[in-house]
Amino acid sequence: MRARVFVTLKPSILDPQGKTILGALRSLGYGAVEDVRQGKFFEIDVAAGSAGEARSLAAEMADRLLANPVIESYRVEVEEPGRT
């Protein structure tokens, strides 16, 4: 089963990379772009009996290693086989 973890800086933390990309997109003419936040994306294949188990495992991994709770938040998605 595949879990996806998205890690981004918390909304209260300035994201200088996102701001730089925002400026670059605007200079390309994308005036409609209002904001950009850059983050990290992990695809994790886990041997789990259920989507719920995969989800809680991935969340535990994010808490312990993938995200730094001081400055980052994360979101977990689980891809269930046969339902995609």
Binding site: I13, L14, P16, Q17, N68, V70, I71
Partner: peptide
């Protein structure tokens, strides 16, 4: 925690 330097 640590962030990228201001100015990158």
């Amino acid at each position: 925690g640590m962030r990228r330097n201001r100015g990158l």
